[in-house]
């Protein structure tokens, strides 16, 4: 997507949708007793927005436990996502997955993932499919700074480089893995430096600035589409809330640090860059925010009025072909 007026409004709309989804959806999910495994990406909106602006629904992404933003930026319907969080049958996963497993294969969305770093090789595999079938699609593996220390990332990067696959390893470095500071857990200051070990380009950008993300992602994705292989893109960002709703982040980070990043809020930065140029007015952006607010109202209503899964759905989609009687055999299940 080009950054003409339409493109700019799209970027803002994606970020605003993510923000509103998190701010409304997470407490609503909590009120329905399902908040154990929901992670807010407020503060990190610029990364999925800037990266996915270069992707179509044919391209692939792999995501994380903090994945609502990736889903929205890749075009997954927020109403269906809300239903998934509420455990409803109208969610993309029919209520089987919840926040940490939202997947929409019609949008090339290979799933948020509950096991840190587990989705990275899935994106590599999707890039392999594209290469072998000559589909000219790219894949983006989103992961956190914590995930960067998992062996599977390193194996995946080497594999992608050896096979010259069209994949972008996109690290959202928000400074923390749960309460563990990035600087404690990593031997290098810039994760993008690790690209050298796998002979691929490493980009390091301000992840609060959607334009910086957009530009670097554009270069990496262009390379991938041209058949020049993988890249590593590190985006320095911040999560405003705790790891989950149960976490008080001030037990391990400072108010000053939080304030610093909030002063560089991605939606605010966008306004500060775009409004002075005059092409887009404040009221246009305000009305996007209002639309997003209203969309979340609709999403909550949609989710609440959607049916729960049938209890017998417990046995559906375990396999393509396997007798349900065998899943219950000898268990004394009551359904």
């Amino acid at each position: 997507m080009e950054l003409n007026k339409e493109g700019l409004l799209h970027l803002y709309k994606v970020m605003s949708t993510i923000r509103h989804f998190e701010e409304r959806g997470i407490p609503e999910t909590g009120q329905r007793g399902m908040s154990a495994s929901v992670h807010s990406s407020v503060g990190q909106e610029a990364v999925p927005a800037g990266v996915c602006a270069h992707l179509s629904s044919e391209d692939y992404i792999g995501s994380t436990h903090r994945g609502h933003g990736h889903c929205i930026a890749k075009g997954v319907d927020p109403k269906a996502m809300m239903a998934e969080l509420f455990g409803r049958a109208s969610g993309p996963n029919k209520g089987k997955g919840g926040s940490m497993h939202i997947a929409d294969m019609t949008k090339g969305m290979l799933g948020t993932n509950g096991v840190v770093a587990a989705s990275i090789p899935l994106a590599v595999g999707a890039a392999l499919t594209s290469k072998i079938k000559k589909l000219n699609r790219v894949a983006v593996a989103f992961f956190g700074d914590g995930a960067a220390n998992q062996g599977v990332l390193h194996e995946s990067m080497n594999l992608a480089a050896v096979w010259q696959l069209p994949v972008i390893f996109c690290c959202e470095n928000n400074g923390y893995a749960e309460s563990t500071p990035f600087e404690y857990a990593s031997s290098v200051e810039a994760l993008s430096d690790r690209a050298a070990s796998y002979d691929m380009p490493g980009f390091n950008v301000d992840g609060m600035d959607v334009f910086a993300v957009y530009e670097a992602a554009g270069l990496a994705i262009e390379r991938a589409r041209a058949g020049d292989g993988p890249s590593l893109l590190e985006c320095k960002t911040y999560r405003y809330y705790g790891h989950t709703v149960f976490d008080d982040p001030l037990t391990y980070r400072t108010k000053e640090e939080e304030d610093y990043y909030k002063s560089r809020d991605p939606l605010k930065l966008f306004r500060e860059k775009v409004l002075p140029e005059g092409e887009i007015s404040q009221s246009e952006l305000d009305s996007i925010d209002t639309d997003c607010l209203n969309l979340m109202e609709e999403a909550v209503e949609f989710a609440d009025s959607s049916p729960m899964p049938e209890v017998s759905d417990l046995y559906v989609d375990v396999y393509s072909d396997y007798p349900i009687s065998m899943m219950k055999r000898g268990t004394n299940m009551s359904i």
Binding site: M327, K328, T331
Partner: peptide
């Protein structure tokens, strides 16, 4: 000898399941 166990499926998300 008899058992009462979870079924041979992954753990579902939705409460009803």
């Amino acid at each position: 000898p008899t058992k009462v166990t979870a079924p041979h499926t992954p753990v579902p998300y939705s409460r009803v399941l």
